[in-house]
């Protein structure tokens, strides 16, 4: 499989220095040197808790935020080297689906205008062709054709998310970044949207980066998963490996924290409850940034930052002492 997107050493620091007389600058390190590859037609899931930098990563790839350092190579081209005009063309091939279908659709635009907007911007279609195209997109995402002249407020959350998806696939992009696309939806609607997304992925050979905090949804849709903690990727591997034998203690804690919908497993569940709160990204702990919450932390973890390396094939981890007997939730 060909690599469609490579991220190398990506950093995003926000300047949060208060007061202009302070000599020392303070930074919020939202994304702090992360690297990964995404193959064509594959889904990479990015999971982590609030403030881990997962959404910032998505915004950086989409060029919605300016990076501090690092490279984003899409289809073999470093996006930073492109001119404004070239970047605009390239953007047609990468699209985004947002979390909140209530605020990501313009309330004054009708369904037709919302879906047609990217087509109008990038292509030169006759009005007849444009309407045909919009209608066929509505069919593809399961929206009734009669809704074409309605406004977003007339729809439920799930239907709005379908409108957002139709807009995202309008230009036949290669890569779609999905930022928490189902977290605002009810369970029964979540499954509709997840199934729709995997159907479209097969039909259109899409590559997804699926950003979410909900592990069950990420597991359902992803091939590979990156776990982020305070701006770093701490573990990256295939979904089978991650869920059956996690190497990083944070991943293990994250997995054991997910309540399983089976009451008979209530007392059998092994694993650990992670203690403490997430530290603030403006004040990152020394050494391994997970060490204050890590049940296995040692002296080395307090002083030395672990490097992100391949522990075994296709299994990357940033930990001085990767778990030998990591407890997953999936039976092999």
């Amino acid at each position: 499989m060909a690599v469609i997107l490579s991220v190398r050493g990506l950093k995003k620091y926000f300047d949060v220095t208060e007061g202009w007389w302070k000599k020392e600058k303070q930074y919020l390190k939202a994304v702090d040197h992360i690297s990964f590859d995404v193959n064509d037609g594959e889904t990479l899931g990015i999971v982590g808790e609030s403030g881990c930098g997962k959404s910032t990563t998505g915004n950086l790839i989409m060029q919605l935020l300016e990076k501090t350092e690092g490279e984003i190579i899409f289809q073999g081209v470093d996006l930073a080297t492109l001119s404004k005009h070239e970047l605009r063309k390239k953007r047609a091939e990468m699209q985004m689906i947002f979390q909140d279908p209530f605020s990501s659709l313009n309330p004054r635009m009708k369904v037709f205008d919302i879906i047609a907007e990217p087509l109008l911007t990038h292509l030169n279609l006759s009005s007849k062709r444009l309407k045909e195209e919009v209608l066929s997109l509505m069919d593809q995402v399961g929206l009734d054709r009669s809704y074409i002249h309605r406004y977003p407020h007339e729809f439920s959350g799930g239907q709005r998310q379908r409108i957002g998806i139709a807009r995202a696939i309008a230009l036949r992009p290669k890569l779609i970044i999905c930022d928490e696309p189902v977290s605002a939806l009810d369970v029964s609607i979540q499954s509709q949207i997840l199934n729709l997304m995997s159907k479209l992925q097969k039909e259109l050979r899409l590559t997804f980066i699926f950003i979410a905090h909900g592990l069950p949804a990420v597991k359902y849709i992803s091939d590979k998963i990156a776990v982020m903690y305070l701006g770093k990727i701490v573990e990256l591997t295939t979904k089978e490996k991650l869920f059956s034998k996690p190497l990083h203690p944070y991943t293990e804690g994250l997995l054991s924290a997910v309540p399983l919908p089976d009451p008979t497993l209530r007392h059998k569940k092994e694993g650990v409850i992670l203690e403490g709160d997430l530290p603030s990204p403006t004040n990152i702990p020394s050494g391994c940034r997970f060490h204050p919450r890590c049940p296995h932390a040692q002296e080395k973890c307090r002083n030395e930052e672990p490097t992100f390396i391949a522990h075994e094939e296709e299994h990357y981890v940033a930990c001085h002492f990767p778990l030998k007997e990591g407890v997953g939730v999936l039976e092999k």
Binding site: V187, Q190, Q192, Y220, L255, V329, L330, E331
Partner: peptide
Amino acid sequence: ASTPKIHEQTETLQVIEGTV
């Protein structure tokens, strides 16, 4: 059936059609 489960392998999720 429509809840994704992390402790089981699922290929497709069952769907409840329509909305509340």
